Amino acid sequence: MIMTYDIDKELRILKALTYEKFSKRRRITNILMNFSMIFAKPVKGMKIKKYSIKGYRDHRIKVYLIKHRKQNNLKKGLLYLHGGSFQLEGTPFHIRNLSKIALNSGYNAVYVKYKLAPKYAFPEGLEDSYKAYIWIKENADKLNIDKNSIAVGGDSAGGNLAIGVTLLVRDRLKEKVNKVLLFYPVIDHRQVTNSIKIYTDTPVWNSLLNKDMWETYLINGDFGMIEYASFINSNLRDFPETYIETAEYDCLRDEGILFAERLKSLNVKVYERHTKHSVHGYDGVFYSKFMKRRIKDRSAFLLGVLNDEEN
């Protein structure tokens, strides 16, 4: 039985995006998404510069530097990893939203086009993302970024990669990223929460798609690195200050809440925004008042002025 959901009127346009499986659409979707990125533009006051850098196993990946048009000093940096079930390319709305956050917060941002599953399954995308972090550190002066103040963020599967990069930076570099931003993140490969069980038909994302995603992402196994892919039981010591958003009608909702609780149990400062009447992928409705509130909170977190309580 298909359930009905009380979705915010500004987000109801997303109701049409309801699927049980999208693997057959993956190739054509990525062609269209790559084409659409030609038209991706930042908001006024920001500009984009594209780079080709070495990713995992020395293959080339593209990164986009989103920087302030007028700047005379080093900016804090934000490494951003897009969502798309580890299989789909990012979209122009990622660039627009990211550039708005960077403008509001005074950060320079780096957006990563990491390699995608199933051809490049775990840990390829994660290692690409880590390589991008290293590249920022090594080229910080050229990028006008303070190498000692780099935050990491991402939406959905990109949120998963953001957590993985944060842990790799801690374990390999013995360093700590500045802050972490997570928007309806993928957290737990076990898929055992109540929201996973009940949200089988929600728009944009549901537990059927989630199961297919994990099977595709881990198709070659976890190489003994599952703690960098699935995080409820990972060692989260010394995790940075974190901002987490969840969507009410999203199969990933409960694992995002559990991850926040786990961090708080380790005395990590966590700012939570559990949005109501919302579905996964609401960032796509970038023009809405709903998203303007989200951008405001995300920017305030980076600036260090966000209130603990939801508003």
Rank of each mutant, 00 (worst) to 15 (best):
V177T: 09
K179A: 11
K179C: 11
V180R: 11
L181F: 14
F183S: 06
Y184T: 07
Y184M: 06
Y184D: 00
P185I: 07
P185W: 02
P185R: 02
V186N: 02
D188A: 01
D188K: 01
H189T: 10
H189F: 10
H189D: 14
R190C: 14
Q191D: 09
V192S: 13
V192Q: 14
T193G: 10
T193E: 12
S195C: 12
S195F: 09
S195N: 13
I196R: 11
K197T: 13
Y199S: 02
T200W: 02
T200G: 07
T202M: 03
T202Q: 06
P203L: 01
P203W: 01
W205I: 07
W205Y: 15
S207D: 05
S207R: 02
L208W: 01
L209D: 05
L209C: 00
N210Y: 00
K211Y: 08
K211I: 14
D212K: 03
D212L: 07
M213D: 08
T216Y: 01
T216S: 12
Y217K: 10
Y217T: 11
Y217R: 08
L218T: 09
I219V: 14
I219W: 10
I219S: 15
N220G: 13
N220I: 11
G221I: 07
G221S: 12
D222V: 10
F223E: 10
F223C: 11
M225D: 08
E227D: 12
S230E: 05
S230T: 13
I232Y: 07
S234D: 06
